[in-house]
Simulated scan of single mutants.
Amino acid sequence: MIPWVLLDTAPLPGGGDLRLKQRGTEFSIMLGPIELMNSRLSGSEEALARLTLEKLSGSKAPHILIGGLGMGFTLRAALALCPADARITVAELVPAVVDWARGPMAEVFGGCLDDPRVSIHVGDVGALIGKSRGGFDAILLDVDNGPDGLTVEANDRLYATGGLGAAKAALTPGGVLSVWSSAPDPRFSQRMRKVGFQVEEVPVRASTKKRGARHMIWLATA
């Protein structure tokens, strides 16, 4: 079996490190013993984009915010479905993740960062949401393994009532907040409804072959 090779590490705000590993053509991003993403498993991340954009069908020149660059699966899926006049802002907290996308994982990304519809914001997605009142038709969050601050503890505020209210304010009327999670969380659904979202919970498979672990996507309409 081909062994894993550690390519790079990147410090996280508040402590801890992300690790980029490679085994042959396969890549993995790890946080401690937890695998956050793997280049072989993209089904649920692609579904995050597809399900959101189905809600926006007919929108002219949509402006979409993706929280978390990851391995670019959600971004690539959104680009494939978005019209030519769309704008997609990707907020990534860890600068090294952007470097990995342009460096060792360039083949995985397939040049999507060079698409003229895409702009990269290196910084906290929560802060960007907070100053973007009515600025987005959709906000897609895939920055943790669920609605709690796994990678960065400060991300907890994204999923609290105040953070959800800020996201609602950052959306256009009828806009969509979509959140990826590795598992269901009924309390999170309740918080979303509390701030006035209409909430749909959609279970999806981790693999594009509709196999593997079941993940959860929340689709919350403002």
Rank of each mutant, 00 (worst) to 15 (best):
I2T: 09
P3K: 00
V5D: 06
L7P: 05
L12Y: 08
L12C: 11
D17C: 12
D17E: 13
L18E: 03
L20M: 02
L20S: 02
Q22Y: 00
G24S: 09
E26R: 15
F27G: 11
L31E: 01
L31A: 12
P33Q: 04
P33N: 03
I34A: 13
E35C: 12
L36P: 09
N38V: 06
R40F: 03
S42C: 04
G43L: 00
G43M: 00
E45A: 14
A47D: 13
A49V: 02
R50V: 09
L51A: 10
L53P: 12
K55V: 12
G58R: 05
G58W: 01
G58T: 02
S59G: 04
A61C: 03
P62M: 08
P62C: 10
I64M: 05
I64V: 15
I66L: 14
I66N: 05
I66G: 06
I66T: 08
G67K: 03
M71I: 10
G72P: 14
A77R: 11
A78C: 12
L79F: 05
C82Q: 04
R87I: 02
I88V: 15
A91C: 14
E92C: 13
V94E: 04
P95W: 01
V98P: 08
D99Y: 01
R102I: 01
M105V: 15
A106F: 00
V108P: 10
G111N: 06
G111P: 11
D114G: 12
V118Q: 08
I120F: 12
I120H: 04
H121R: 12
V122G: 04
V122M: 12
V122W: 01
G123Q: 07
V125Y: 03
V125F: 05
L128T: 08
G130C: 13
K131T: 15
S132H: 09
R133G: 14
L140R: 10
L141I: 15
D142Y: 09
V143Y: 00
N145L: 09
P147V: 08
D148P: 00
G149N: 01
G149Y: 00
G149K: 02
T151H: 00
T151E: 00
E153Y: 11
A154F: 03
D156T: 06
T161R: 14
G162Q: 12
A167L: 07
A170L: 07
L171G: 14
T172R: 15
G174N: 06
G175T: 08
L177R: 07
S178N: 10
S178W: 04
P186N: 01
P186D: 12
F188N: 06
F188W: 03
Q190K: 14
K194D: 15
V195Q: 07
Q198L: 15
V202H: 07
V202F: 04
S207Y: 00
T208N: 12
A213Y: 01
A213L: 05
A213W: 01
R214F: 11
H215G: 11
I217C: 09
I217G: 08
I217F: 08
W218Y: 13
W218Q: 11
